[in-house]
Design a protein around this nucleic acid. Structure first.
Lengths: 177, 177
DNA sequence: CTTATATCAGTGCCACTGAAATTT
DNA sequence: CAAATTTCAGTGTCACTGATATAA
């Protein structure tokens, strides 16, 4: 809503119908081989981009970026609101140094606190604060309202797409950085 | 292949089975509403992430980033290998300033040249060079080999996923920054 | 001694905002 | 004059590498 310029809207309703379809047409015209896979990749990537933008737009008023929201939501739903950073890194599938800086940001906003573990004194524990929980609940409500960036998609469609991708991902290694 | 550390592999084959499934389990345990959409979003986003990493790994030896490759491929398949930057911006669904810097990078690598348009002297035309074409062909071959990051996916699956997402995207505005 | 955890410093890329120059 | 195209300067976030400190 906020960043949608009139130029974009014009282009969108005008000559530019679907960038992915245009790309597919081009590649087909040049007799390319892995067309179905190219089309799947293009569609998945474009949908992910649209989802991400919708979520970021909704999260901005809550003073959260998308990775920050994911980390906060993970803590909010974890036992006691506590997790060691290494575990967060693997759950969020991001690099360890990225978690460090994400937790830095959440800490500076008062959404999270750092503690040390009693059991393993190498570990740093991130613990969600009351303000963090409050924000996480607001964010979860907002995400529910926009259907996680998939407003307009039916429940049946969502289940089908989720099921197909889950099934495929089960056949490949789920690599972590 | 290159960045896969032993620690990641251990985690992957050990306690961490699937980050998306774990997240879904957590959200279900807390009685959340838009679960199917959340699961679809998580799966689409995670798959896009895996695709992106596979492609970037393959493109790195060719001295191309993913956005640079997309811009170069677009030029390579366009008429005469020429396009005005504004058109590239819309086709690639990225911000105009992003195209400027992407073309800067491709130009510094000798893959692209800038020209001015005869018809509208406001426009700047990007034209692919012979070296750019050579690189684009190598990249296209490499992308074909790894099936655009979807190696291991059957053609039927690729068509099904592409079709479902294409159909859904047709019902929503394909917003451009 | 080796491994694991987390941090820090530094790099590069990407996407954006806001302002400007040029041309239509 | 207004609108379109591109550029430039600057900002913020993210993800990574490599090195380091600490503890298991």
């Amino acid at each position: 809503m906020t960043t949608k310029s009139s130029a974009s809207a014009t282009e969108n309703s005008g000559k530019q119908l679907d960038p992915v379809a245009e790309a597919t047409r081009q590649w087909r015209a040049h007799g390319f081989k892995a067309l179905p896979h190219m089309e799947a990749t293009a569609n998945v990537s474009r949908l992910a981009q649209l989802i991400q933008r919708a979520m970021e737009e909704t999260l901005r008023p809550l003073n959260l970026t998308r990775p920050q929201h994911e980390a906060l939501a993970l803590l909010n739903f974890s036992h006691d609101g506590c997790l060691p950073l290494g575990k967060m890194s693997r759950r969020l599938t991001v690099h360890a140094t990225t978690v460090t800086s994400t937790v830095d940001q959440l800490e500076s906003k008062g959404f999270v606190e750092r503690t040390t573990s009693d059991k393993d004194r190498r570990q740093i524990i991130a613990r969600i604060t009351p303000l963090g929980r409050e924000t996480a609940v607001k964010a979860a409500d907002a995400m529910g309202e926009i259907k996680y960036g998939l407003a307009g998609m039916s429940v049946a469609e969502a289940k089908e797409i989720a099921g197909m991708i889950r099934q495929f991902r089960a056949t490949i290694p789920d690599l972590i950085p």
